[in-house]
Design a protein around this nucleic acid. Structure first.
Length: 271
DNA sequence: AAAAGCCCCTGGATGC
DNA sequence: TGCATCCAGGGGCTTT
């Protein structure tokens, strides 16, 4: 579920509330993607300094070490003083002096991993290959163009891979390519500089607007304060196969790329 | 080095 | 109603 906008919406919904808290207890449910990496009791009494985001990872900085948290495909967080009794899909819970942080993740593709120091072990491996942050100044057309130049895979799959630019998942990749008028199957390296510039602008636009809309809630997504997103009402192509394009009325098409579905308009995205 | 497949897991929708 | 099949917002790992 969660792409960059959903992860950032989640971060914003609890970062300031948990900052300065002290951890009172940690409880684990069923196994997530990776083990926590330390005994839960080791986290007790640590202080929470703040919450950052890198790509689709949330980084909870502690006064000693940090927690890396990923929502996977179906994860969502809750943070509140009084939460209902844990359900069957609540697999991580951290009680703090300022509220309880809980991860609900039915598919368990998500993860919570403890790392000793910022550039140690897990953090380095998981974050090391990530591309540039699309909503920062570091994401500029020159750099993006250079990154795409050496990739001979389809542009949609290069966007999803996250090693050129992070945070663009299956929904926003289709949406950004539509906005830029680019066919998802085009080889990344073949995109002309003006088209790369359009895609660059489209990615920033789509992620920015989705963020402002509280993200996309297809099924379960909600921020840590329980707010659902509403960007699903603004999608141009995603999950609209057979429906008329909102620009030209041609039927939206879909195809499979790397076991993921892609949606596009055959008229607005001719090449 | 980069591309393509595989797989982790559960649940909801659809079809017979 | 019951059961099988397919699909889902991610991404690390292994194989080409």
């Amino acid at each position: 579920m969660p792409e960059l906008p959903e992860v950032e919406v989640t971060r914003l919904s609890f970062a300031s509330r948990i900052e300065g808290a002290r951890i009172l207890s940690v409880r684990l449910g069923k196994a997530l993607r990776w083990p926590l990496g330390c005994a839960p009791s080791r986290l007790v009494n640590r202080g929470v300094l703040g919450v950052r985001r890198r790509g689709k990872y949330l980084l909870i900085d502690l006064d000693q070490g940090l927690l890396l948290l990923h929502l996977g495909m179906s994860g969502s967080l809750s943070f509140a003083k009084d939460l209902p009794a844990p359900g069957r899909h609540d697999h991580f819970e951290m009680v703090t002096t300022q509220g309880t942080l809980r991860l609900n993740d039915p598919r368990r593709f998500g993860a919570v991993v403890y790392a000793d120091a910022q550039d140690a072990g897990a953090a380095r491996t998981l974050l090391g290959r990530l591309g540039v942050e699309p909503l920062t100044q570091d994401f500029d057309v020159d750099r993006f163009h250079a990154g795409l130049k050496r990739r001979k895979a389809a542009i949609k799959q290069v966007l999803l891979a996250g090693d050129v630019v992070v945070g663009v998942g299956n929904i926003y990749a289709s949406e950004a390519l539509f906005l830029a008028g680019i066919r998802p199957t085009v080889i990344a390296a073949r995109l002309s500089r003006p088209r790369v510039a359009r895609l660059h602008a489209a990615i920033r636009d789509i992620l920015g607007r989705a963020l402002a809309s509280g993200g996309t809630t297809l099924r379960n997504f909600a921020s840590a304060s329980g707010e659902k997103g509403h960007f699903q009402f603004e999608t141009m192509v995603y999950a609209r196969e057979g429906e008329p394009c909102r620009v030209c009325s041609k039927a939206i098409k879909s195809l499979r790329q790397g076991q993921r579905s892609t949606f596009y308009c055959p008229q607005c995205q001719k090449a």
